[in-house]
C-alpha cells in the first residue's frame, strides 16, 4: 500500500545519542551526546525514556513551540509494553499513539503522521523513537555485564533518541510518498543474523514502492535501509538482483554509517529503532539541505521477534516501511 502526499513536510528534527555514537564518524551531526549510559538516571529503562523525552524537548526548543501546540506524538521503542515511550509521553503530556514496529518504527511513525497531516486531521505531529543498547541487551539477550561472545553477524543496538516534526507548512524537505510494508518470513531463525532476516522485507518494500509510484531505482539519489548491517546489505543487493533483476548501486545502510565498523567493536554494525533516524536526521538531511542529495528513500526494517519466540526456535518474520523524501526547489 503506497500513499502519495500533496502537502506534508519534515520541518525540523532532533537527535541525542550515547557514547558509542559520539565516537562514530557522524558525531558532529548530532544535537547532543552523553558520555555514559545511565543519562543521569538509575536504570536502563529510565535512561532510555529520558533519551526519548529529551529529544522531544530539544525539538520543541528548535521549533520555538510549546508542547500545547503539538497535536499528536507518535512514538515507539524496543522495550516491553513500550515503557520508554509511555513514560516520556506521560511527562510531556502530549496526545500519544504508541507504535511497535521493532527497528521499522521510525518510518511507520512518519507514515501514520503524514497520512493524518495530509488528510488535515491534525495540523502537526512529532514522531519519536528511541533505543538503548543496555536496555535492549537486558531484554533480548544477556545481562549487560555478562557480555557473552557473539558471532560476526550480530548487530550492536544504537543508543539514542530521535524526533522529527511533521506538518503541512512548507519547508525544504517534503515527504512525497510512503509505502506500508507486509510482514514476510523467509525461514531464518538466527536472532544474531538480523540482516538476513530483514533483507527480503526491505527488497519487497523497495520494489513495491517503485512500482506503485512508477519510478525506477535510479530516480532516487539514495536508498537508505536501516538497519541490515554490513552482511545484510550485501544479501539485500544480491536478493534484489536475483529476485527482481534490479541493480541497486545507490543503496546504503544506516547500520554501516553510524559507527566506524573497522575501529569500533560493533560486529556487523548498528541496529535498533534509533539507528536509521539518527543517521537520517543528523547526516542525510544535512546533505539534502546542501542539495548534495535530492531524493532519498528511507526503508526502515524491523525483525518481529521476542525472546520467547527465539527460544522456541520459531523463524523470524520481518517488515519494512518506506518513506520518500525530496528537496523542494
Amino acid at each position: 500500500m503506497t500513499f502519495k502526499y500533496k502537502n506534508v513536510y519534515l520541518n525540523e528534527t532532533s537527535t541525542i545519542t550515547g557514547p558509542f555514537e559520539e565516537k562514530g564518524p557522524l558525531a558532529r551531526f548530532f544535537d547532543k551526546s552523553y558520555q555514559e549510559f545511565y543519562f543521569e538516571k538509575k536504570t536502563w529503562e529510565q535512561a532510555e525514556s529520558k533519551l526519548l523525552e529529551e529529544s522531544i524537548e530539544i525539538l520543541l526548543n528548535k521549533l520555538g513551540k510549546s508542547k500545547q501546540e503539538i497535536d499528536l506524538l507518535i512514538a515507539g521503542d524496543l522495550l516491553n509494553q513500550l515503557v520508554s515511550t509511555n513514560y516520556a509521553a506521560t511527562n510531556l503530556a502530549i496526545p500519544l499513539i504508541g507504535i511497535y514496529g521493532a527497528c521499522s518504527t521510525s518510518c511507520l511513525g512518519i507514515l501514520i503522521a503524514s497520512n493524518m497531516v495530509d488528510k488535515k486531521q491534525i495540523k502537526n505531529a512529532i514522531v519519536s523513537v528511541s533505543s538503548h543498547n543496555n536496555a535492549a541487551e537486558k531484554q533480548f539477550r544477556q545481562p549487560v555485564e555478562y557480555g557473552g561472545p557473539k558471532p560476526k553477524t550480530a548487530t550492536f543496538t544504537t543508543t539514542g533518541g530521535a524526533s522529527c516534526y511533521i506538518s503541512g507548512s512548507s519547508s525544504t524537505i517534503k515527504i512525497d510518498s510512503a509505502t506500508l510494508g507486509t510482514p514476510i518470513d523467509m525461514g531464518i531463525k538466527d536472532a544474531f543474523h538480523m540482516g538476513a532476516v530483514m533483507a527480503p522485507a526491505a527488497a519487497e518494500t523497495i520494489i513495491k514502492h517503485l512500482r506503485n509510484t512508477y519510478q525506477d531505482i535510479n530516480d532516487y539519489d539514495l536508498i537508505l535501509t536501516g538497519d541490515l548491517g554490513r552482511y545484510g546489505k550485501d544479501i539485500l543487493k544480491e536478493y534484489l538482483v536475483n529476485e527482481y533483476g534490479v541493480e541497486a548501486n545507490n543503496l546504503d545502510d544506516s547500520a554501516c554509517m553510524i559507527y566506524d565498523l573497522d575501529k569500533q567493536n560493533v560486529y556487523a554494525g548498528g541496529s535498533g529503532p534509533a539507528c536509521l533516524p539518527l543517521v537520517t536526521y543528523g547526516y542525510i538531511l544535512n546533505q539534502m539541505n546542501k542539495k548534495r542529495l535530492k531524493r532519498v528513500l528511507l526503508v526502515a526494517t524491523g525483525a518481529l521477534l521476542s525472546q520467547a519466540t527465539v527460544n522456541e526456535k520459531m523463524s523470524i518474520p520481518a517488515i519494512a516501511h518506506a518513506v520518500s523524501l525530496e528537496v523542494v526547489e
Binding site: 560476526k152 553477524t153 531464518i188 543474523h193 538476513a196 552482511y231 550485501d234 544479501i235 544480491e238 536478493y239 536475483n242
Partner: peptide
C-alpha cells in the same frame, strides 16, 4: 544459499 554466501 544467498545468506550463507554472505555470512562470514
Amino acid at each position: 544459499e544467498i545468506v550463507d554466501n554472505h555470512t562470514p
